[in-house]
Amino acid sequence: MDARTLFASLALATASFAFPAVAADSTQNFVDKAAVGGMFEVDSSKLAQDRAKDQQVKNFAERMIADHGAANEKLKKIATEQKLQVPTQPDAAHKSDLEKLQNTTTGFDQPYVDMQRSAHADAVNLFQSYANDGDNPGLKAFAAETLPTLKMHQQMIEKIAAANAAMPAVKSASTPKPPAPVPGANSFTEAQAKNRIQDAGYTNVTSLAKDDQGIWRGQAEKDGKNISIALDYQGNVFAGH
């Protein structure tokens, strides 16, 4: 065997051993994030059932306990069957958020709603990414099956947030950017939406269409990558939504 053939054989063998390790890390990372996120949904919503004042918030919390409780059990079953570790305790960030809710003596609803908006934006991105590019067939199917429910939850909490906070139709300098597009009557024309997205640093904005939530959605480029883009009625621009 000459040197060139030997090096090619070694490279092929190295690659065949390297790929499974990367796949396992990616799969375990998804399980970790999905599990701690699901635990937070249930635990925070149990607090909301007792302490929230708004009935819509209470109803939402009840739905979260049921839906995420079922999803958590399904994730645990699939992961255990494939000998993956499933976290049984929240990570530091979620533990901190739970402690904040537990220590809130007045005005519980708003911090709970804000945390739910952020949590569901993260969950939708996580499950969407794994449903598209996941390396474990069973968990990939689980992510794809669960994703529509997560998106429905996200729409529910955004409607609650918009109704309760009476957020302004146009974002001002003092208005913090929400974690996800806010549904509402959108007065931007297609040209105005395109200009606003371009002003946010994106180029080659195409396929813009307004959905039934009043959110302009399309494709754009940034840093050499083509990504999904969204513009809500406040003028907030989001990538990957």
Results as ranks from 00 to 15, higher is better:
residue 142 F to Q: 05
residue 15 A to N: 05
residue 7 F to V: 14
residue 131 A to T: 11
residue 89 Q to A: 14
residue 87 P to I: 07
residue 29 N to D: 13
residue 110 Q to V: 15
residue 194 K to N: 10
residue 49 Q to C: 08
residue 148 P to R: 00
residue 128 Q to L: 03
residue 207 S to F: 04
residue 193 A to G: 06
residue 46 K to Q: 14
residue 96 S to P: 00
residue 188 F to Y: 15
residue 159 K to N: 15
residue 175 T to Y: 02
residue 159 K to Q: 15
residue 167 M to F: 06
residue 218 G to I: 10
residue 131 A to Y: 07
residue 211 D to K: 01
residue 230 A to L: 09
residue 155 Q to N: 13
residue 151 K to G: 13
residue 190 E to K: 13
residue 8 A to W: 04
residue 29 N to C: 03
residue 230 A to P: 02
residue 152 M to P: 00
residue 109 D to R: 04
residue 139 L to G: 03
residue 58 K to Y: 04
residue 191 A to R: 07
residue 72 N to M: 09
residue 187 S to V: 12
residue 130 Y to L: 01
residue 148 P to Q: 00
residue 125 N to W: 00
residue 139 L to R: 05
residue 119 A to T: 12
residue 88 T to L: 03
residue 181 P to N: 09
residue 138 G to D: 15
residue 197 I to C: 02
residue 79 A to P: 11
residue 74 K to R: 15
residue 141 A to V: 10
residue 48 A to M: 09
residue 184 G to A: 07
residue 209 A to E: 13
residue 143 A to T: 01
residue 222 K to Q: 13
residue 62 E to I: 04
residue 87 P to V: 07
residue 145 E to F: 00
residue 221 E to M: 12
residue 169 A to R: 05
residue 142 F to M: 03
residue 103 N to G: 06
residue 216 W to H: 07
residue 229 I to Q: 04
residue 219 Q to T: 15
residue 187 S to D: 14
residue 96 S to T: 13
residue 144 A to L: 05
residue 21 A to D: 06
residue 211 D to S: 05
residue 129 S to E: 14
residue 106 T to Q: 14
residue 216 W to C: 04
residue 22 V to A: 12
residue 80 T to S: 15
residue 107 G to C: 06
residue 196 R to I: 12
residue 40 F to I: 08
residue 205 V to Y: 04
residue 190 E to N: 07
residue 26 S to K: 13
residue 168 P to L: 00
residue 123 A to D: 07
residue 48 A to D: 08
residue 107 G to K: 06
residue 228 S to Y: 04
residue 135 D to R: 08
residue 132 N to Y: 03
residue 81 E to W: 03
residue 120 H to R: 02
residue 160 I to G: 04
residue 57 V to E: 07
residue 237 V to G: 01
residue 35 A to E: 09
residue 120 H to A: 01
residue 91 D to C: 06
residue 91 D to W: 05
residue 201 G to W: 10
residue 17 F to P: 01
residue 9 S to V: 11
residue 180 A to F: 06
residue 172 S to C: 09
residue 172 S to I: 01
residue 180 A to Q: 10
residue 136 N to I: 03
residue 177 K to I: 11
residue 31 V to P: 02
residue 177 K to D: 10
residue 151 K to F: 00
residue 147 L to M: 01
residue 114 D to P: 01
residue 189 T to V: 09
residue 203 T to C: 01
residue 49 Q to S: 09
residue 38 G to Y: 01
residue 70 A to F: 02
